[in-house]
Design a protein around this nucleic acid. Structure first.
Lengths: 184, 184
DNA sequence: CTACAATACTAACGAACGTTAAGTAAAGGA
DNA sequence: TCCTTTACTTAACGTTCGTTAGTATTGTAG
């Protein structure tokens, strides 16, 4: 029965349900059924539905973001960003669903104010971080700020395509688009 | 009491609720309360909850898209796209919420398979349409396809920023980003 | 004035929800 | 051997949900 830690299994199934049916569309009963455990076991490991959801965003999603943000970068900036996006294609299904859920909260389609505040803080860190990465490569351009902004916007859509819409983006298409922005 | 058509008022309040709380988080009772009518009146004008939601997407959202897509275009392509995006800032609150709901369905965060299919069809029409618009302006470039794709991706993020995240995007920032892609 | 449709309401249905009370089974240290 | 802790169960609580049956009110055409 306890092939895997039950607490973990509950979370995995919960990700599935929250992703497919949304917070309000997800029921503890259905999670318990899929986990093949009794209903109160969910409450044994998690205080309530909201805490289960929060743990997924706060731990799973932000861990994913941090792991992704700490990727080593190559000296070729276009290679770096291409790889950064392309690797999302091979994220595990679980990670993709966690990511998807996170974006849902990021777009304020779900979650409460507390989670939204976490997202806002994260968002504020995005532009400066990429500006730092791109700084050495954008020395002799006058519209550096706009280029960074455009690139970040472009990255966002590509992430959404892969993670949210579950599309496969080929490496050369990613490279083409990034090049268009960075070689302007 | 009947200052405005009740059927219409129900739909307006429904947009508000679906937008804020999602499909499953929205209750007919709360809609009725905000409309200040009795609960069964909702069922008098709409078959059920799903039909109310569907009408918002099928009629309101797609009308909005069509209206937007039929905008007259200027001879300057950068002006055209800048205006196209910038004008979203001054969409009415109701239209913004309808748009937001539509994007939610577009990203398959909500709605059933039928609605998703409508979205897929719409999505397929996007690239060819912009390719047609851009064709005369991208004659002597070899990566025309990639540029169109990049532009559409960029437009998507800007739309999301304005409509979904409810940010104000200044005209010059929009113009800068579009120029970066189109002048490459 | 009357009859009949359209519009509105009160009240309630059964089902499903989040959550918890209360108890059992197993395990491990004293 | 007893006792405490951990892991788990059945059963039920009260609430709210979508939906509808049944009835009253209103507007209007004859």
């Amino acid at each position: 029965m306890t092939e895997k830690d039950l607490r973990e299994r509950i979370k995995e199934v919960a990700v599935e349900h929250f992703d497919t049916n949304g917070y309000h569309g997800t029921t503890i009963r259905n999670i318990a059924k899929d986990v093949n455990c009794s209903l109160p076991m969910i409450y044994y490991y998690y205080k309530n539905k909201k805490e289960l959801f929060d743990e997924i965003i706060k731990k799973e999603f932000f861990n994913l973001l941090k792991k992704q943000a700490s990727l080593l970068k190559t000296d070729n900036i276009i290679d770096f960003y291409t790889k950064f996006i392309f690797d999302l294609n091979s994220l595990s299904n679980y990670d993709k669903k966690v990511y998807r859920l996170g974006i849902k909260v990021y777009l304020s389609f779900e979650g409460d104010e507390e989670l939204m505040k976490l997202m806002d803080e994260w968002e504020k860190s995005i532009l400066p971080r990429h500006r730092e990465i791109l700084k050495p490569h954008l020395k002799n351009v006058n519209n550096e700020k706009a280029i960074v902004r455009t690139l970040v916007h472009l990255l966002e859509t590509m992430i959404e395509n892969i993670v949210v819409k579950n599309r496969y983006l080929p490496e050369d298409e990613i490279r083409e688009e990034i090049s268009i922005v960075l070689k302007s």
